[in-house]
């Protein structure tokens, strides 16, 4: 393939003494659904705003489809943004909102109208053209914002915490919907989120941000199963670290290692362990029953603690609660433990 849809090279941004972005290099391929995941203040939104053109980088470049756009104004870039607060124009109806970009580009009235209606249909809002944004629900506004951006057929669609303002149920629906819309239109989606589950379920690839840098880039499975740093292991899922003396005692090797909670099996002390497995003994200090699964916090005899997640296939809350304070053996397959760069 030719140039990537977005290429960021050595991107930095400082606001006075605050260094929001401290060197980001990223290539995002055409047609990709790409997530920038990180806690608040990790610089992900600032990167998005530099791609949109709302902020000018302190240094580094932004390329769109091979062309350097670092110094171009937002209206000169072939990207559109879905804002966190949707930023719908409250004094215009839905149709005028969606047509805004086309009107600016002097698209003839008939075509403008047709494309706007098609965009509204693609987000399942037929017949809502005459309403004011104030008369719509959060989810509907979100979809109007999406239609208003998509109708311009940008090279890249930027989404800033697109589902952040929706309640859980609606958020889950919109995750599926966004994904299918992206597949239909084939436009590169680049979205910012602090919700690791959202990033894992929706995107083709994820970049995990921390303190203005990218910690790791990879597919959701890579990020989750093979986090390369302690931060990624902790931010994406539960960090289950075995380090120092405990690593020596349990695994017989130096360094810091991580095992995901659902990879751990809670077994009796006398459980036999085969050669492909590792195990550690400890005491259950906490049992958290969560409906479909139960979380066990186990204090290891060798030091440190691990969290094990067990599906409640046969057991009920009454059964698992009695396990608090008992001695157990945690067992896992060797291939599920991996070294962490600290």
């Amino acid at each position: 393939m030719s140039d990537p849809a977005v290429r960021l090279s050595g991107l930095r941004k400082s606001f006075g003494a605050v260094h929001a972005v401290t060197g980001v290099d990223l290539d995002i391929a055409d047609g990709e659904f790409f997530a920038m995941l990180g806690p608040s203040g990790s610089g992900k939104t600032t990167v998005l705003r530099m791609i949109a053109g709302f902020e000018t980088p302190t240094s580094g470049t932004v390329e769109l489809g091979g062309a350097d756009v670092t110094r171009l104004a937002p209206f000169e870039r072939d990207v559109n943004t879905v804002f966190q607060d949707y930023a719908l124009f409250p004094h215009m109806n839905v149709l005028d909102n969606v047509e805004y970009g086309l009107r600016v580009k002097r698209v003839p009235r008939a075509e403008r109208h047709e494309r706007a209606l098609a965009a509204l249909a693609s987000v399942r809002l037929e017949g809502y053209g005459g309403r004011r944004p104030g008369q719509l629900s959060g989810g509907q506004r979100q979809r109007v914002a999406l239609a208003r951006a998509l109708v311009n057929r940008p090279r890249v669609l930027l989404l800033d915490e697109p589902l952040g303002a929706l309640d859980l149920k609606l958020r889950e629906e919109m995750q599926v919907e966004l994904k299918s819309i992206q597949r239909e239109v084939g436009i590169t989606f680049l979205f910012v989120t602090h919700d690791q589950e959202e990033a894992l379920t929706m995107s083709d690839r994820v970049a995990v941000f921390n303190e203005g840098r990218v910690e790791q880039v990879g597919t959701p499975a890579e990020i989750y199963e093979r986090p390369s740093t302690a931060f990624v292991a902790g931010f994406v899922g539960t960090s289950n670290l075995i380090s120092g003396e405990a690593a020596q005692a349990v695994l017989g090797k130096e360094g810091t290692f991580s095992v995901r909670p659902e990879k751990l099996r809670v077994a009796g002390l006398g459980e036999s362990v085969d050669g492909a497995e590792h195990s550690a003994t400890g005491t259950v200090s906490e049992v958290v029953y969560a409906g479909p699964a139960t979380r066990f916090v186990v204090e290891l005899d060798a030091g440190g603690r691990l969290i094990a997640l067990q599906q409640n296939l046969q057991v009920s809350s009454m059964d698992v609660m009695s396990l608090r304070g008992t001695r157990v053996r945690l067992v896992w397959h060797r291939r599920h433990e991996f070294a962490i760069v600290s």
């Binding site: 209206f75 930023a87 600016v104 311009n152």
Partner: peptide, 26 residues
């Protein structure tokens, strides 16, 4: 909200049009 001004720019409007269609009416 600043985001309204940014949204207008994002959709291709320059300063004058943003003023006429977004800032002034609001």
């Amino acid at each position: 909200p600043n985001s309204l001004l940014e949204a207008a720019g994002d959709l291709g409007a320059r300063g004058r049009r943003t003023f006429r269609t977004v800032v002034w009416p609001l």
